[in-house]
């Protein structure tokens, strides 16, 4: 691989601090304790489908519509309905209780082709860098998701805070 173009640092990246401080981000304890919804939405944009779709009223945007979504982890049962509805593809489900050493991360995915359950894939972080190997646990693409599949992968626990997707399954020209 030749030297790849590096994104300009700071140009877009939301620092972990900002993300973790936003009201949609669960606390460290919650992340440890149970499967949790992670909302990475730190900008005030007029949008609230996550609130509308939540059957338990766990996600609240309220008035004005530009409020950052806040999540009540006690009400949330991590059903994941909010993942495919988010127009910004910014909602994830992290389960650190999957096994002793492994965690699962569920994320929205719209690329073709979809991975298959059981596939060995490369998990990537928010920067698209390969973080670790992962195994595809579930691929859910019902009609109600309107072509936004939700993929669940199993990864080593220590990566559960950085992995937010998988490498595209398209054949990538390795020379570039």
């Amino acid at each position: 691989m030749k030297d790849r173009l590096k994104s300009t640092p700071g140009a877009w990246v939301i620092s972990r601090e900002i993300l973790e401080a936003s009201p949609g981000y669960p606390s460290k304890e919650e992340l440890k304790r149970k499967p949790v919804i992670v909302i990475e939405c730190p900008e005030e944009i007029p949008c609230d489908p996550c609130e509308t779709i939540c059957p338990r009223g766990a996600i609240v945007v309220g008035e004005p519509i530009t409020n950052l979504p806040r999540i009540d982890q006690d009400k949330c049962n991590a059903c994941g309905l909010c993942i495919p509805i988010c127009p910004g593809l910014a909602i994830f489900l992290v389960d650190n209780t999957y096994s002793e050493k492994e965690a699962t991360v569920s994320f929205p995915y719209e690329y073709y082709p979809l991975p298959k359950e059981g596939d060995e894939v490369n998990a990537v972080n928010r920067e698209g860098e390969i973080a670790c190997k992962a195994k595809v646990l579930k691929v859910r693409d019902p009609k109600s998701h309107d072509h936004t599949s939700v993929i669940t992968i199993v990864i080593p626990k220590e990566y559960s805070n950085q992995v937010r997707g998988i490498e595209l399954q398209q054949k990538v020209d390795k020379n570039e």
Binding site: K6, S7, A90
Partner: peptide, 12 residues
């Protein structure tokens, strides 16, 4: 963010 997850660089 969703573009960056695929590794496409954004150069400002």
């Amino acid at each position: 963010a969703k573009i960056r997850r695929t590794g496409v660089p954004i150069l400002t």
